[in-house]
């Protein structure tokens, strides 16, 4: 109990302390990490549903997008200021989570996956349909001038980093508190054996709905934060791909571990970054020189990486990195 709290504080403090160092020496990674923290927040939310409750959603992008559009459209069209727009964005995601949960949680297993996929797809298509407001796949940007809270300029790299860190820390600590609470024990029990949990007197539907709404809220907060901090909202974030990403990050880092989502997001981000930066173009050149096949697509092969990672993880490491660490060395890891 104490150990795990200390561990999380140390991780957050570490992220806090490296900020100035990164800004001075590695401005590129500084910017990346701010983005990663926002996306990791999304993954933390996903993990509550998938990792701890055992519900595999294929449509979480709809919650991310609900937060993003709820916030960004109010700023763009309603000319709201950042703070209230952010909260309305989160509220949109929570509401959507409640509605989708009420319906989708009547199904189980594969049914749940497809229902969430379909709901997300209809939200994505809706974003495209109202092209007039959302500008579809192309998206729209939020001008720098409005991106500030109470005089604090959110476009400044340091402020942006800390804003992302604060959001991430809140969600991370919330997830830690949740999984160590009594409600968390019920969620884990539902993941392990839903029928048994019911026969111990818990209403699985209510707990699953609770997990889904919390999860959706965090996804929405991440989406709204993305719009505010990086000044952009687009339908791509509502597409199937952005539903698959958090699944991949959580699978890589370790489903059902509080720190897994962060680890998975960082690793996958840099794997893709590294691959499209040096490895894959090198490979493309190799293929072209040796086999005479022009392979321009290979140069930015993030699809291949994502695909391979999914297949290999599900085949050989379904517990992910931290899940395996917990199994072998650190049994107390939350």
């Amino acid at each position: 109990m104490i150990r795990s709290i200390v561990l999380h504080i140390v991780v957050i403090a570490g992220l806090f302390l490296i900020e100035s160092f990164l800004l001075e020496h590695y401005a590129y990674h500084h910017g990346n990490l701010a983005r990663i923290l926002v996306l990791a927040t999304y993954a933390v939310g996903y993990n509550i549903l998938f990792g701890y409750t055992g519900l595999l959603s294929l449509g979480h992008a709809m919650f991310f997008a609900a937060g993003m559009y709820g916030c960004a459209l109010l700023i763009r069209i309603g000319e709201w200021s950042i703070a209230p727009a952010f909260f309305v964005g989160v509220l949109c995601a929570l509401t959507l989570g409640l509605i989708v949960g009420f319906l989708a949680l009547r199904t189980i297993g594969v049914g749940f996956m497809i229902v969430t996929l379909m709901f997300a797809q209809s939200i994505y298509l809706t974003a495209l349909y109202y092209n007039e407001y959302t500008r579809g796949d192309e998206g729209f940007s939020i001008p720098q001038t409005v991106r500030s809270i109470g005089g604090i300029d959110l476009t400044d790299p340091t402020t942006r980093y800390f804003a992302a860190l604060i959001l991430f820390s809140i969600c991370l600590l919330m997830s830690l508190a949740l999984v160590q609470s009594k409600a968390g024990r019920v969620l884990i029990a539902i993941r392990e054996n839903e029928d048994r949990t019911r026969m111990l007197g818990f209403n699985p539907f209510r707990y699953k709905l609770f997990a889904l709404v919390i999860s959706a809220g965090m996804a929405g907060a991440a989406g709204a934060a993305y719009a505010v901090l990086f000044g952009y909202a687009g339908a791509t974030f509502a597409s199937v791909q952005y539903s698959i990403f958090p699944l991949l990050w959580v699978l890589l880092g370790g489903p059902g571990t509080t720190l897994g989502p962060l680890l998975g997001t960082i690793l996958m981000f840099y794997l893709v970054d590294l691959a499209s930066g040096s490895i894959m173009p090198g490979l493309a050149a190799l293929v072209e020189n040796n086999f005479g096949i022009e392979a321009p697509g290979l140069a930015s092969a993030y699809l291949l990486l994502v695909g391979l990672a999914l297949v290999l993880l599900v085949l050989f490491a379904p517990k992910g990195l931290l899940g395996s660490v917990r199994e072998r060395w650190v049994p107390w890891l939350p």
Partner: peptide
Amino acid sequence: PEATIVATIGILYILQQLALTFYG
């Protein structure tokens, strides 16, 4: 059932990449 869905999503990306790479 659930693992195969994740795996076929992976296959989806791999095939897409292969097509993009060699077909353009």
